[in-house]
């Protein structure tokens, strides 16, 4: 029997390892990263994967080996041993050092993504250097869609004020985030009803929207996926089937799953501006729509 049970444990664990090895080839892996800090996230993921993978193989290996080696032994007694201080010290100290390394190695990437100085509105890592942002954006979540508002000229003069009140020249979109390659985008993330969570898998970006608060979020895309064609008024995909999507990752009611949006990264600022101008014209021609949208995207509190 011991061979059978050892095999059961071995096969399950080898299978577990196998699916991790096969997954990238099956297309069951991290979506393509297109953000400036996404590379850090992926690198840290692989570091943790390597460390945990090593300990997975080590511990499961010892377990299965013990089952074979020490199972149903034809001996009178097992060995009488209550413990070993040296071993305890070893398997306390080594994991401790590894875990401390794993912990501290995370800090810079986290700071880069989330430590946002509310004065300069940029990660504290960059403050002082006074790196300017390129694009302001309000993302207002509600049941069950994302309402996006961007100012004329990409940047708002008094962003904090603008995020609350809006401006008649703002462009309003639903479920579409537009930016351009290498633009540093700051998002004022809000919600008008329940908690939602803005998730852009390709940007390795996620942030909950809290009722009553405006959450600071930023990203910089390092790759483009669309080009605007002024002749047709259509966005042309640079890489077919390369849709980058927006999802909600905080339960927000029955249609939580339907908060799907799309991320469009234009190849240049000129391309974005051309698109913006046409989109603005289209919006102006729907004056009534605009009124309704402002009311909704400021949560009715102008």
């Amino acid at each position: 029997m011991k061979i059978f049970w050892s095999l059961v444990f071995a096969v399950i664990n080898i299978g577990a390892l196998g699916i991790f090895i096969a997954a990238p080839y099956m297309g069951w892996w991290l979506p393509k990263n297109v953000s400036s800090f996404g590379g850090d996230v992926d690198r840290l993921f692989y570091i943790i994967l390597a460390v945990t993978g090593f300990f997975f193989v080590l511990t499961q290996g010892i377990l299965v080996y013990s089952m074979i080696r020490f199972g149903d032994r034809k001996v009178e007694k097992a060995s009488y041993i209550h413990g070993h201080l040296g071993m305890e010290a070893l398997w306390t100290a080594v994991p401790c050092l590894i875990l401390m390394y794993l912990g501290f190695v995370q800090v810079p990437a986290w700071a880069k993504m989330k430590y946002i100085d509310l004065e300069t509105w940029f990660p504290v890592r960059f403050s002082g250097k006074n790196i300017e942002h390129d694009l302001d954006m309000v993302v207002l979540a509600r049941q069950w869609e994302w309402r996006i508002r961007t100012p004329q000229g990409s940047r708002a003069a008094n962003a904090a004020q603008w995020a609350e009140t809006g401006n008649l020249n703002d462009l309003h979109l639903t479920n579409e985030i537009h930016a351009w390659k290498d633009a540093r985008v700051r998002i004022h993330l809000k919600t008008q009803d329940v908690i939602h969570s803005l998730f852009l898998p390709n940007l390795r970006l996620k942030q909950d929207a809290l009722p009553g608060k405006t959450m600071p979020v930023w990203f910089q895309a390092i790759e483009a996926n669309v080009k605007y064609n002024p002749a047709t008024g259509q966005l042309e995909e640079l890489t077919p089937n390369g849709a980058w999507e927006i999802a909600c990752t905080e339960l927000c009611g029955g249609s939580h799953y339907r908060m799907r949006g799309k991320l469009y990264i234009h190849e240049s600022k000129q391309d974005y501006d051309r698109w913006f101008a046409d989109a603005m014209k289209l919006q102006r021609s729907h004056e009534l729509n605009k009124q309704a949208n402002i009311a909704a995207s400021t949560g009715g509190r102008q």
């Binding site: 996230v41 840290l44 794993l102 995370q106 996620k206």
Partner: peptide, 10 residues
């Protein structure tokens, strides 16, 4: 791990 959790959370 906070940065990795950004992706894996929920």
């Amino acid at each position: 791990a906070t940065p990795v959790d950004v992706y894996f959370h929920d």
